[in-house]
Design a binder for these strands. Structure first.
Lengths: 214, 214
DNA sequence: TGACTTTTTGCGTTGCACGCAATAATGCAA
DNA sequence: TTGCATTATTGCGTGCAACGCAAAAAGTCA
């Protein structure tokens, strides 16, 4: 280890390559269109072979989204407690997973490309849904520590966790979609706070609706 | 029109072919595995060319699931009112969409194949999610006629409808997944009632959870 | 340096998805 | 029933995705 980051050259290079491919993929998707951007073009711009491309991302969509399994796992490991509201905590977690890319960089490219191709949002959610087991286990852990759920069994916590996760995911998806389709021409970069509020309102609405539909 | 069904020979033949392909696809998926079953095999068994296959289904998964755009549209057109609970009505609608196949036949094959390959469930839900606009419009219509939502605007109804739809979809998915993974060896065919009850319980749980997490 | 592990790469394979134009099947009217 | 318009089916060809395999390159560490 002859560097400051605590990582060997290999790991650093790997993260860098992942990021380079992601950027190339997202840029080309924006420039040429999602379908028109072929893996060959992307690999070309990234300066790797097409075969190497597949060593980093299983599909083109994943590359465009910059979904990095390692970064996602790291994010999951980091999550331990849940101080605030469970639904809000989940929003933060999901959006964090959302923005977890190779180099740990939150690229605006991703935002732009999803704005242009909302289908990717669904794709992203499917990816998160694949983490269902790991995520619901974490949520069940939160519930277990929560006094309000003290009298319930572990199995019940897990069932509830799955429902909470599913509902949150759906709500985040709707929220993000609304935000992505919103013209919102006046607001600048600090507009990134908006989704969280929109989400809060959506959860509140859900609560109201459920009450009305007793 | 020289037949009893009110459809021309073309329409009937088309529905029949769609069904034949679907059955071939589902059977082969069960026999050989979802990936191992190629479109060539499926077309072969169905007695059509691979090219014709793509005239009926855009992807192999759609063929296995027997997703028929015409049948789905017919199902959506049929839906008009909503007498009972909105969430229950949605469950019925979603499962109806779920079982809408070319010939209008509810094949057990589909059930089996999804049991074996739960990924298809997610796929199916993505398909339903693509109907989001049409479906949420229908739900908004329900809300507009509902006294409990009388004081709200049309836009609010639509927002609520989207949330209700998203949450229902997620819940149905979880319900079906649980049902699909359940060994449930004792119960016979009448077990098909179970999912609806499981769904009801899930919605009830959601209500409780939301109350607790005020 | 030299032996090691890991990564990259080129090559080849399989299968998906679909455009296009020729051919066949069906519907309809005379 | 026959001929014409419409629609369906098919074969052919193309482009691309995804990945296995083994050789070559790059990084690691003694």
């Amino acid at each position: 280890m002859n560097n400051s980051s605590g990582l060997g050259l290999r790991e650093r290079k790997r993260a860098r390559t992942s990021e380079v491919i992601h950027i190339a993929a997202a840029e080309l998707a924006l420039e040429r269109g999602l379908d028109a951007a072929t893996i060959e073009m992307i690999s070309d711009r990234a300066g790797v072979s097409t075969r190497t491309f597949f060593n980093y991302f299983p599909t083109k969509e994943d590359a465009v989204l910059g979904i990095d399994e390692v970064a996602v796992s790291a994010e999951l490991d980091r999550v331990r407690g849940c101080d605030e509201d469970v639904f809000l905590a989940l929003f933060d977690l999901i959006t964090a997973l959302f923005e977890a890319t190779g180099g740990g960089i939150k690229s605006d490219l991703k935002r732009d490309v999803i704005r242009k191709y909302p289908q990717l949002m669904t794709r992203q959610m499917v990816r998160v849904a694949e983490l269902e087991d790991r995520l619901s286990a974490i949520i069940a852990g939160w519930l277990a520590k929560d006094a309000r759920f003290a009298e319930q069994s572990e199995a019940e916590h897990l069932d509830e966790a799955r429902i909470i996760l599913g509902v949150s995911l759906a709500t985040v998806r709707i929220t993000m979609k609304k935000w992505a389709s919103d013209p919102d021409p006046t607001t600048g970069p600090p507009a990134s706070a908006a989704p969280r509020e929109t989400y809060e309102r959506a959860i509140a609405t859900l609560r109201t609706v459920l009450e009305k539909l007793t």
